[in-house]
Structure formats: structure tokens, C-alpha cells
Write a protein that binds this DNA or RNA. Structure first.
Length: 720
DNA sequence: GTTTTTGCACTTTTT
DNA sequence: GTGCAAAAAC
């Protein structure tokens, strides 16, 4: 046909040209998925689809931006197409139609920090303890509530399983409602309500008929709630196109459900299914290693990727004595790559946890290698930035008590915990939010007569800020900084980091000014929204001349000529916090699969014999997954700080003496010790050898299903 | 009410 | 080694 189909393979053409009706594109890593989706969008528009009636859902804001650029390059009026993440789309929908879901459209988006503060307060109240005792409980309860919300379940469902968590949910919900706040999960919950039937009937837009085509990317990481939204949005036309790869599902913990792919074929039995398996990204050696790894997942549809590139160099293994040596060797490898003419931006170092980055950063910095960090301390999490943003949020939403409490005494204006506590109590009694009380709306609390004098200037300050908001977001940010004399306060309150903080605050002014310039009639709410929903990966700029250090999760969807996987050890892969349940082990395996398949030409897997974890030095063993990958070229030692890539290496089976080569046979009644859970008794055994599953009852009464291969159980003679 | 000091718990992964 | 929160001192 036209140039849209040039350089596409037959499966890709099938996906691009598919007309009406449901379409499922199963796309392995590096199979040209992004290209197919952008061409498909262009093809739809050229075939007469109205771009204003197209909706493309992506996993990150950055992916949405990229799709916009790439479709624009194909002469598509991409500005007219709605491209956003589920969360951003939901937020926009609720600004228009919040009332249909029972929410005031001037709501604040409550971020993860605010959320945990609210939950901690709710838990503390219900337990009658201090905030400290509430912390751990709150973190646990928070995860459960979030998981239930994303599964499309309500407080009553959680209450049946865990009455306390259910009560916390209701209390938390009440607090959110009082401040007109909406957390990340609520965005989806409420959007689903607004889109499908159920809520109040005064909808301004018929969402079920608003789009002719809906496209959803990274479908394997979509949760039940998101799936419901997508399905409702295309209720009329059924023109739903989803793309994903079950082997790259790495957000199960956030409620993502691979079963969605199965439900898709169930809900749309007439769906066309296209499989993309020709990999154009990685060398044969890299692909083979990744394939051997993922083949170990039992709950999986068989699928083998075909390498379209040559064999390339073997995947390499770097063994180091400790984490410092590892960082040094990796830094040396990066330096050698650059010395041989490679661009720094071609190099990525992938880690499992954000905490691993520090030594790697130091190593790169010591060699003068510029690097970017994706996922780590973010600009928007800086205290000074959050302070200024809190003022903005209070202006946008006068009921935002979380922001109010954050800045009522920042900079210091003599309003202490006692005053805030009194306001909070009065707010609970009267139902009028604390920030409104502080501004003299509603009856003044008794016994706070003296505090009134201190609060009055604050009330006037907020009123002045409200007035300046009309001149744009940047004007408001400047007003906040000037009126509160924020920079002066920073300068005197903080010693060494004061300059950096002032710099950050000024950067915020720039950011707001840029928003004002680019935004067309968009206001404060939209500014706060885009910034609240800005993700980790969104800041990544592939064109910047820098190496990249990033978490494996943040690496999803990206590719690099050279990839180093740092810390390929048991404890990271699988992570010590994940359980021995097969679902979780398999997700950890998929995570390493995603990491490996980011590499185009060179892949280095690295581990260290010792590593400082939370302050203590621990002995480490290689990730059990490395054994599954099998032969790779090994770079012995690692205490040598020359280039691991350039050394000759013969193909060796990993770990000349496979770590624990014999697995003890257990039987019921055996007394054992687990490295983490401690002593216990075997109550049941299924299977034999390394794959055998044993049930162990530990001293606290908890029973765990463990796989002998991973559990490192030791038989003991006597209990304890 | 504010500042400083001590103590402790912490490290998955993120929209 | 770190960052946050309660306790102690100003």
C-alpha cells in the first residue's frame, strides 16, 4: 500500500491494517511493537478515523509523549488524539465529569507521601497509639487497601478478610473526602464509576460513545480496574486494540493481572490475535540467554523469539569480591566502552533496588562519566519543592488539609502543633476543614482566641496568593516565594545544602513559566495534575549524552546497546522480600528477562560475593536464575579493574561448582532452619529434588510453602 | 514553641 | 550509612 507498510513484516502489517473489531497484539521484546502501534494510529487516521475520537493509553507519560512525536512524524494531527496514562486520563475525565462519580472537580491529587501520612494518622487513631507504632501497620494496610482498590473491590470486601484494615480504609476514606482529595487508586476507581453506570446520572459526556478506537499499550500490566475502564470506553464500537507480552508482566504486586490477556480472548471471542516474535533488537546470544531463562516459568504460554540480528558476542558474567569492586569494574567497563568510541548514552546500568545506585554513581563520577539517574530522589520529592507545591495546592483546593498542615508553619510563623491540633479537633466536630477554619470561615474555635492573631496574617497571605493566581502559575509560584520570604528562610535555616535548595525553588519557577507558555488556557489544577502524575521514567531523555543508571522496572520499554545488570544475586533476584510462592518467583524471573532484553549488543551480568545491605556486610550468592541461563563467558576475579568486556573469555558453565549442588531430601516431621524465618517443622512434602515443595510450620505458627531449591533449608538436630 | 540531639528502622519494584 | 521521628534541651 503506502509507506506506512514499507519495512514491516507480514505480522506487523496484519496488526497495522486490521480494521474494526477487537485486536490483541502479543509482542515479545524488541519485535517492533511501538512501530506497529504508531503506524496503526496513522493508518486509522488515513483511513478516515476522526483523530479526536481516538484514545491511546500508555504506561508512562513519556511513552505518550513519544507516541505523539512519532505519529506527528507520520503527518498525523497527533495533538487532536488523546494520549495519556490511565491515571492522567482518569484525572482529566474527573475534572470534566467528577460529579458523575460523586467528587468535586477541584480535587487535589494526593501523592504517595501524603497518602501514607493520612493512613498513619488513621491507624494511630484506631489503634490509640502514637504515629511510630502506627507506621509499620500503616504500610502494610496501605498495600492491602491499594491492592483491593485496583482489583475493583470495596472496603466491605477487605473488611471480611481483615476487619481492622477495613476500618482503616473507611477512616482514611473519610479523611480524604473531607479534604477533597483523591489518591492514585481513587483516580481509577472514580473514573470507572463515571464511565460505567451506577453513579449519579448527570454525566456531561457519554464516555461510552466518546471514542471510536481505544488502544492500550503494556496490556500485561493493566489491572482489573483499568481493564474495566478500557472495556467500558469501547462498549459501543468494540474497537479495542491491546498490545502486550505476558513474559514482561512485572507489576503483579500493584494489582496487574496477566489473566487479563486470557479474559480478553474470553470477553472478545472474535478478537484477532497477532503474534510478533521476530526480534530486531538483540543479538542471538542475548536473546538465547533470555529465552533460556524465561523458559523456566511454568505458568506461561510457550513462545520463542527469533533473532533477526547475528549471534554477536557471548553474554558475560562479572564476579566481584564485594560491592565496591563491582561498582569499580562496572565503571571501568563503561569507561572502556566510551574510550572505544561508544556514546555514553548507549550504556545502561540496571539495578533491582534504588538503594543500589550510590556506589555505581560514585564509580561513574570518579571517572568523569556523566550519568542520569532514573528512579531515585526526584525533584518533585524534594522538601522545598513540596513546600511550595503545598501552597499551590491550598490555593487550588481550599479544603486541602494535608497541604495546609504542611505549610501553616513553614516558614516559621509561631503556629505550633498545639494550635494545629485544636484546629483539627474543631474541624472534626464541625465538619469544616481546618484550612477553612484558619481563614475565619465558620465559627471560630473556642479557646483559640490568642492563636487567632497568629492565624490572621496567614489567612491574608493565602487570600493574596489566590489573587495572584489569575496571572498564571509562574506568577503564583513567584508570589509564594516572595510573600513568604521563602528563599531567605531557606538561606538561614539550612547550612550546606541551602544553595541547592534555593536553586531547586528557582527551577520550579522556570518549570511553571514553561507550563504557562506551553499551556493553552490550562490552569493551576492542570499544572498540579501533570506534576503529581509525573513518573520516574518520564524524566529520562535518551538524547542526553549520559550513561543511565535505572531500576529494572523503570527500564521497561527502553533499549540500550550496552546493558549491565548489577547485583544479580539471590536476595535481589529474586528479592528477599518476595515470597517463595511460585507466582512471585516467576515475576522475579520475568523482571530479569525484561532487564536482559533491553540489551541490543552487549550484556554483562554482575554479582558480588559480599555486599553491604542496610549497613551490614552480608555474604552473597549468585542469583539462582543465572544457573538457568547456563553457559556465559565468565570474567574471573573482578578484583582486577580493567574492562570485563575486552578480556578473552571461554564459554563456561556458570559457577564451576554449582552452589548447593545437592538438595537434602526432606520428609514430614523433620526439624529445619530457614535463613529468614528461623526454626520450623516440615508438615508436608510434594515432589522431590530441587523442585520439591515442602510445607513448613515455623515457631510463630505460620505455615509457608517453600521450594527446596530456593529456600535454603537446613536440617537441624533439635528444635531452636 | 523552637532547636538540637539521640535513637531507630530501614531498603523492593511505581502510577 | 541514612533519614526521619520522638525526646531533650533551649
Amino acid at each position: 500500500m503506502d509507506e506506512l507498510l514499507r519495512d514491516l513484516n507480514p505480522e506487523q502489517i496484519e496488526a497495522v491494517t486490521h480494521g474494526a473489531g477487537p485486536l490483541l497484539i502479543l509482542a515479545g521484546p524488541g519485535t517492533g511493537k511501538t512501530r506497529v502501534v504508531t503506524r496503526r494510529v496513522a493508518h486509522l487516521v488515513r483511513s478516515g478515523a476522526d483523530p479526536r475520537r481516538l484514545l491511546a493509553i500508555t504506561f508512562t507519560n513519556k511513552a505518550a509523549g513519544e507516541m505523539r512525536e512519532r505519529t506527528a512524524a507520520l503527518d498525523v494531527p497527533s495533538g487532536e488524539i488523546t494520549m495519556a496514562t490511565f491515571h492522567a486520563f482518569a484525572a482529566r475525565l474527573l475534572r470534566v465529569d467528577g460529579r458523575a462519580a460523586g467528587i468535586d472537580p477541584s480535587f487535589s491529587i494526593v501523592d504517595e507521601d501524603d497518602r501514607s501520612a493520612l493512613l498513619r494518622a488513621a491507624v494511630a487513631e484506631l489503634m490509640g497509639t502514637g504515629a511510630d507504632a502506627a507506621r509499620k501497620t500503616a504500610a502494610e494496610v496501605s498495600r492491602r487497601i491499594s491492592f483491593f482498590k485496583n482489583a475493583g473491590k470495596g472496603a466491605e470486601d477487605l473488611e471480611r478478610e481483615d476487619p481492622f484494615a477495613g476500618r482503616v480504609w473507611r477512616e482514611y476514606e473519610a479523611r480524604l473526602r473531607a479534604m477533597n482529595g483523591v489518591d492514585f487508586d481513587d483516580l481509577l476507581v472514580l473514573a470507572e464509576k463515571a464511565v460505567s453506570g451506577g453513579g449519579p446520572g448527570d454525566r456531561r459526556v457519554d464516555w461510552r460513545a466518546a471514542y471510536d478506537h481505544v488502544l492500550v499499550d503494556e496490556y500485561q500490566d493493566v489491572n482489573a480496574l483499568q481493564y474495566r475502564i478500557a472495556r467500558a470506553l469501547c462498549a459501543r464500537t468494540r474497537n479495542l486494540c491491546v498490545t502486550g507480552d505476558p513474559d514482561q508482566s512485572i507489576y503483579r504486586w500493584r494489582g496487574a493481572d496477566v489473566e487479563n490477556i486470557l479474559s480478553f480472548e474470553r470477553d472478545f471471542p472474535d478478537a484477532r490475535v497477532v503474534r510478533l516474535v521476530r526480534n530486531y533488537r538483540s543479538t542471538g546470544a542475548i536473546l538465547r540467554a533470555a529465552d533460556r531463562l524465561i523458559a523456566n516459568n511454568v505458568r506461561r504460554k510457550e513462545k520463542t523469539l527469533t533473532a533477526m540480528k547475528g549471534e554477536g558476542e557471548p553474554v558475560r558474567l562479572l564476579s566481584s569480591g564485594d560491592d565496591r569492586d563491582e561498582a569499580e569494574s562496572i565503571g571501568a567497563a563503561a569507561a572502556a566502552e566510551i574510550a572505544s568510541g561508544r556514546a555514553p548514552s548507549d550504556i545502561a546500568i540496571l539495578v533491582r533496588t534504588a538503594a543500589q545506585t550510590r556506589l555505581l554513581e560514585q564509580s561513574l563520577a570518579a571517572r568523569g562519566i556523566a550519568y542520569a539517574l532514573v528512579g531515585g530522589a526526584r525533584f518533585w520529592d524534594r522538601r522545598e519543592v513540596r513546600d511550595v507545591i503545598a501552597y499551590l495546592r491550598l490555593v487550588a483546593n481550599p479544603r486541602d488539609s494535608v497541604s495546609f498542615e504542611r505549610i501553616v508553619n513553614v516558614p516559621r510563623r509561631g503556629i505550633g502543633e498545639k494550635t494545629v491540633e485544636a484546629l483539627r479537633a474543631h474541624a472534626a466536630r464541625t465538619g469544616i476543614p481546618a484550612p477553612e477554619l484558619a481563614r475565619g470561615r465558620g465559627p471560630w474555635p473556642e479557646g483559640l482566641a490568642r492563636e487567632r492573631a497568629k492565624l490572621a496574617p496567614f489567612a491574608r497571605l493565602i487570600a493574596r496568593l489566590e489573587a495572584s493566581a489569575a496571572a498564571g502559575v509562574a506568577a503564583l509560584v513567584r508570589a509564594v516565594i516572595d510573600e513568604t520570604r521563602y528563599e531567605a528562610w531557606l538561606a538561614e535555616s539550612e547550612g550546606p545544602s541551602a544553595d541547592e535548595r534555593i536553586e531547586n525553588v528557582r527551577e520550579l519557577v522556570n518549570d511553571a513559566a514553561q507550563f504557562d507558555r506551553e499551556g493553552e488556557g490550562r490552569g493551576l489544577n492542570e499544572y498540579l495534575e501533570t506534576r503529581a502524575l509525573a513518573g520516574d521514567a518520564d524524566s529520562y531523555d535518551p538524547a542526553a549524552p549520559r550513561a543511565t543508571i535505572l531500576t529494572m522496572h523503570a527500564a521497561k520499554g527502553l533499549e540500550f546497546p550496552v546493558v549491565v545488570v548489577a547485583g544479580a544475586e539471590e536476595g535481589f533476584l529474586p528479592h528477599a522480600r518476595s515470597s517463595d510462592r511460585i507466582e512471585e518467583i516467576e515475576e522475579e524471573r520475568r523482571l530479569l528477562f525484561v532487564a536482559m532484553t533491553r540489551a541490543k549488543d552487549r550484556l554483562l551480568l554482575s554479582w558480588a560475593e559480599r555486599r553491604a545491605v542496610a549497613g551490614t556486610i552480608l555474604p552473597r550468592v549468585p542469583s539462582p536464575f543465572l544457573r538457568e541461563i547456563g553457559p556465559v563467558a565468565e570474567d574471573g576475579g573482578g578484583r582486577r579493574r580493567d574492562d570485563p568486556f575486552s578480556r578473552p573469555g571461554e564459554d563456561l558453565f556458570f559457577g564451576r561448582e554449582p552452589a548447593p549442588s545437592h538438595y537434602p531430601a526432606f520428609s514430614a516431621g523433620d526439624l529445619v532452619r530457614h535463613s529468614f524465618y528461623g526454626p520450623g517443622t516440615i508438615t508436608a512434602v510434594r515432589g522431590s529434588g530441587p523442585e520439591a515443595k515442602v510445607t513448613v510450620r515455623f515457631r510463630d505458627g505460620a505455615e509457608k510453602q517453600l521450594i527446596v531449591e530456593f529456600a535454603k533449608l537446613v536440617r537441624v538436630a533439635a528444635p531452636g
